[in-house]
Design a protein around this nucleic acid. Sequence first.
RNA 1: GGCCCCGUAGCUCAGCGGAUAGAGCAGCAGCCUUCUAAGCUGUUGGUCGCAGGUUCAAUUCCUGCCGGGGUCGCCA
Length: 591
Amino acid sequence: MNVFEVFTGRVVAAVQKVVPAEFGVAAPDVSRVVVEPPRDAAHGELSTNAAMVLAKAAGTNPRALANRLAAVLGDDPDVAKVEIAGPGFINLTLKPAYWHGFLANLLRLGTDYGRSQVGRGAKVNVEYVSANPTGPLHVGHGRGAVVGDAMASLLAATGHEVTREYYVNDAGGQVDVLARSAFLRYREALGETIGAIPAGLYPGDYLVPVGEALARVHGPTLLGLGEAEWLPVVRQTAIDMMMDLIREDLAALNIRHDVFFSEKSLTSGGTDRIAEAIAAFRARDLVHVGRLPPPKGEPSEDWEDREQTLFRSTAFGDDSDRALLKSDGSYTYFAGDIAYHYDKYLRGFRSMIDVLGADHGGYVKRLRAAVTGMSGGEATLDVKVCQLVRLLRNGEPVKMGKRAGNFVTLRDVVDEVGVDPVRFMMVYRTSDAPLDFDFARVTEQSKDNAVFYVQYAHARTASVFRQAKAAVLEGFVSAYLVEREMAVVPDLSPLADPGEMALVRKLADFPRILESAALAHEPHRLAFYLHELASDFHSQWNRGTETPQLRFINQADPLSTDARLALVDAVRVVLSSGLAILGVHAPEEMR
RNA sequence: GGCCCCGUAGCUCAGCGGAUAGAGCAGCAGCCUUCUAAGCUGUUGGUCGCAGGUUCAAUUCCUGCCGGGGUCGCCA
């Protein structure tokens, strides 16, 4: 139930009535007609650009067309006032009764309010985190994790069929390095003194338990083997334990993926999915053999000019064609990633989203090229590149040395400040821009801290109901309101105060915020909306401080109290379901 | 050098085709015998990096510059 959608329909109906009859355009193109809240509340409650968008086609000027449309819209029984302003905006003010009806509907819908079916059940694959299984997640991964997870929830809430996915890079050189690092810890666990970890290996002590586990299971038997024999064994154990670690890190943030897709599985078990994908590309004439110019930037010593098997990604806007095979004949990482995305395509995903870290910006074009190429343009890939997170303590950047010891992991941060601040702050910023994460700031119990501010608003709604309970005992508030049995909505007509009505209108914005945030793949818009709603609520709360008649619970006026409790409950519902989509707890009280 | 992201109030950032460009912080002036003042109200403050272009309309889209950050390879 979306007020703006409803009135878009009515404006379009007015257009279709007026424009053909009076301006001789049989089928006006209404695709650009929108109904929105005006930027300035003084301009009314709803605003449409219809006259400006259609004037040219109608062969008239915007104000003249606006006049005719306004006349029709003025006959709408729910419209109290129509005004034409500026270059041709039509501004509508609705009757209070319409807003009261809207609020009643909101309460009947409860937590379903705001959900929509714009996605029409389309399958969407959201891939996020996908960190190499070589150690614990760092804060940058955390940002991608939260953004991806919120995006998935947002899409699910708007009628998409969402799969949350993690690509496990369990093939390639880095997991071999992991295995060698773990082997060292294994020897250590058997009593050997290993000294400093050699450069090029992972020094982190999170591998100590891996070494111990290997020692426990295998005893000293691996020591007698050559690397070719022990490495696969050690590698698998290490990967499994690292993935367990990563899953724990994610679970600490209440993030769970539906699918963990193994890179290695592409070429194991007798199949070669990468070869199949390349064959499919070849069939579309997207593979050729050629030479590439030498890499720019730092001169490379080992670069050699040679014929290569290339994906024709320049056909789809990439700057260079991309190699699929290394000089030793094995697949490049990109070839595997193509096969992985091809697999998503074969699983029926026509919409894919990859949430990547800042360091993968240069990878975006070729990935999009691959998806466009494999699907003949039928499937789309949106890549969200999350910019860097800078950790601050007391305003000073936290030094993140390469050496183990002063490396701050995601888990460290979650353990120190809690899930809610991490999740909210990671999404309280467009992912395109770098993010400062200040330890002190995000745990501060004040209005300067956005997480706290929003949660506090929710806690205050709960507080109102706690107070109302006492009022019930004194017999002037309806018990059913306090029990939140909103199936029976009270008479809302006492809601008339400008602040109350502003709150109602703000609540009406929720569905379109959800929808636009979901379609734009920008969860931060929801976070900002919730902050605004909280602000409006705090504001109204405080008006009661100055003007006692405006308090939500007003002993002198039980009818108003009932209606206001309904309004407060609606605020509670929206804050709560918005926070739920962001994965942030909506507390009953602040501690 | 190529590509990507960012340049909006003193600071941190929203807005991304519409009407006089918004919020928070900081500054200034106010509001607690009160549903948690853990909050609220008012106010000061802007050539939306620069220059062109498209449009009825550009902070928003396009091009080129200028700043800042990231990235570049058969790595993953």
